[in-house]
């Protein structure tokens, strides 16, 4: 086994963990600035070591497993919640050279593996033998499943115009124009559905602290709880990079500025998406549970289907087909 195959994923793991610590800090800083306060600045210069301190704290914390909890399930749940979050990164092409697999059905793999997390959440909710956790798990499972469908539907527009599920080909196809413009409806639905997949405001029902039901990870303490948080932020990394690849043209430079390397463009677009996630979290109130479900089925899904129809129709129109038949 040549070393690159082994070292690559480990290196990616460290990059992702590094990103997660910086993302948590960056989120608290951004929300702090929006709320006209400096954000964490106590631990380390400008608060850089804040997340490290948090993780260390969680490590030291006592690892309580409720007595009547279903022990094997309870221990397994965080792992099942985290593994797909990381496994999904295998298929994301960061630049032409920097990618792990030329998977023919990249998107399908991504969307399929990412829905395994729901099982982990249900296990966590059920195993902790706590009525709040159970209600929270039910809610978040229902939410993630009902938003999975608009998420998938919104991507079909791109697949139609590119004609392949391979993420690398999708990025290649966006040399001239990024898919955010022709597929704007798809982008809107995708972005909103990804917000809900990540359980972020305005769809952060499960761990709505002011709500009665306090999330599926209410019984988890110490490092198991950290695992759930970790999987949430790795998903932010995965979802943001997928949005960049699908809609913002991966490593393609805008307006032909190709002297700056692709990775820099990728990171810039990626950070733009991550910033907008935090920005929305600081501004939006929370949607009610029944409104959330209704929104998914009655608004997002029809819009996504309409977007597919639009793409299919516009492919035939003579002038516009260069946008839609790549």
């Amino acid at each position: 086994m040549n070393p690159v195959l082994v070292m690559g994923p480990i290196l990616l793991l460290f990059v992702v963990l590094g990103f997660v610590t910086m993302a948590i800090l960056f989120e608290r800083k951004v929300i702090g600035w929006i709320q006209m306060r400096p954000g964490p600045n106590r631990v380390g210069p400008w608060g850089i070591l804040q997340t490290v301190a948090d993780v260390l704290k969680l490590l030291i914390k006592e690892d309580i497993i409720p007595s009547k909890a279903d022990k094997p399930l309870f221990k397994l749940a965080p792992a099942i919640a985290f593994i797909p979050a990381f496994a999904v990164l295998a298929v994301i092409p960061f630049t032409e050279s920097l990618q792990f697999s030329q998977f023919a059905v990249g998107i399908l793999y991504y969307l399929a593996v990412s829905s395994i997390t729901i099982i982990g959440i249900l296990m966590g909710g059920w195993a902790s033998n706590n009525k709040y956790a159970l209600l929270g798990a039910m809610r978040s499972a229902a939410q993630m499943i009902s938003y999975e469908i608009p998420l998938v539907m919104s991507v079909v527009g791109i697949i139609l115009s590119v004609g392949s599920l391979n993420l690398v080909e999708i990025v290649e196809a966006q040399k001239q124009v990024w898919f955010i413009f022709p597929q704007f409806l798809g982008f809107a639905v995708f972005f909103i559905a990804s917000l809900s997949e990540l359980n972020r405001t305005p769809f952060d029902l499960p761990e709505a602290e002011s709500e009665l039901v306090a999330g599926y990870h209410v019984e988890y303490t110490g490092f198991r709880f950290a695992f759930f948080m970790l999987s949430e932020y790795v998903y932010v990394f995965a979802m943001a990079s997928l949005t960049t690849v699908l809609f913002l043209g991966g490593w393609n430079a805008p307006f032909g500025l190709t002297m700056i390397p692709g990775i820099v463009w990728f990171v810039l677009k990626f950070l733009l998406i991550v910033f907008s996630l935090f920005w929305i979290r600081a501004t939006m109130p929370r949607v009610r549970v029944d409104q959330l479900m209704e929104f998914a089925w009655k608004v997002l899904l029809p819009v996504a289907l309409f977007n597919i129809l639009l793409t299919a129709v516009l492919q035939e129109v003579p002038y516009l087909d260069f946008l839609y038949r790549l």
């Binding site: 929300i31 929006i34 709320q35 006209m36 306060r37 405001t201 305005p202 952060d204 709505a208 002011s210 979290r281 600081a282 501004t283 939006m284 109130p285 929370r286």
Partner: peptide, 16 residues
């Protein structure tokens, strides 16, 4: 009230 409904920032502006 906004904090109950889920929005975090108005609380800070109100207290400012």
């Amino acid at each position: 009230y906004l904090l109950d409904i889920g929005a975090m920032s108005p609380f800070l502006y109100a207290f400012r």
